[in-house]
Design a protein around this nucleic acid. Sequence first.
DNA 1: AGGAAACTACACCGAGCAGTGTAATTTCTC
DNA 2: GAGAAATTACACTGCTCGGTGTAGTTTCCT
Lengths: 204, 204
Amino acid sequence: MPTPTRPTRLTDLKRAAILEAAIDEFRSAGYEATSMDRIAARAEVSKRTVYNHFPSKEVLFIEIMHQLWEASREGEELVYRPDLPLRDQLLELVGHKMRLLHGEAFVSLARVAIAAAIHSPERAQAMVARMNEREEGLTVWLRAAAADGRLKIDDPVFAAHQLQGLVKTFAFWPQITLGQPPLRPRERKRVAESAVDMFLAWYA
Amino acid sequence: MPTPTRPTRLTDLKRAAILEAAIDEFRSAGYEATSMDRIAARAEVSKRTVYNHFPSKEVLFIEIMHQLWEASREGEELVYRPDLPLRDQLLELVGHKMRLLHGEAFVSLARVAIAAAIHSPERAQAMVARMNEREEGLTVWLRAAAADGRLKIDDPVFAAHQLQGLVKTFAFWPQITLGQPPLRPRERKRVAESAVDMFLAWYA
DNA sequence: AGGAAACTACACCGAGCAGTGTAATTTCTC
DNA sequence: GAGAAATTACACTGCTCGGTGTAGTTTCCT
């Protein structure tokens, strides 16, 4: 065997099964309505084993949030290129964002996180901060394009929110709050192009 | 006395106190995490009295949804006027929408409803339908303007969503999901004008 | 092979939950 | 002032939950 004896330890399989089951339960029922018994049953694991891996429901939940957060990274930044058309670059940026928005891990994270944030003002703030971090990419691109004189933008943060709003109203909020299916490729293309064109019509 | 003996019946006061307390609890804690005992305590009313007015938690919740829904109406429709500038009319429409979005009743409703919808696909659909009803106003206005030849819009529903997205990304979603404070008048003006200008730059 | 580590079934605890029944007290209405 | 209606305190049912303790079994590692 290539790898000695690592990958298939029982305890690791159990732990993975618990996490997978917990994600499913939390996502479909929310934090409050999910019980440790249900998680154990779904993972086909003793309830005691769940508590041997995770000392409490809260810790298990936080662990899942971390895991989904990391899983939804995978984002290399796009940098501003003075030599390429704005429209092409923006389409690339928006397309990249939409691919992230429709990732399984990201949707799971967002649904659970937003459901939790709605009723916990303290936790909400931390999530805001981190979510906004991830949206920085577009802002810096806009700032660079403005500094280069190719966009008439005085407030890149505001403008970035506008462009994101144009996209999220189709490709994020309906999926998160209403469980609607992700956009099909044709729809994604239309949303992206229409958003970028409208944006450039005003700011270019 | 002008009004004979109507307004201050004890049973009406109790009922009102229960509804008020229930709204507070549901809004801040969500449906699952709110208990009838807490509602009774907050309303300074016997738990039994709560059940004398409302046969179950579910019925009480639905009653509240109805009440908030009605309270957030107050919306007269704006009709398309061929003789007035598009920008003025759209600003009026958007301003009207933002006033609704920031109403106390509407925010309460939306927070509770969305929190409930996130984990209940069946209920979510009904809410979508009714929410979209209320967004019809802008769509018909756009359709009229397009038919009049003053806007180059082939899909008014899509375009209406875009304009709404431009507004909601500042004036709705942050308030609902993150509990952020409503926009100040200056910010509202800026969001509305910028959204309308960008919209018209592309579709006019 | 043998000891350590992990897993399991199961019983249990204390708490909170939605909802009910009742008998006594207060309030309304005429 | 009398009868009806509403409110109250309180006890109670049946259920679910998060979490623990235990004793026996299985799996891992050397």
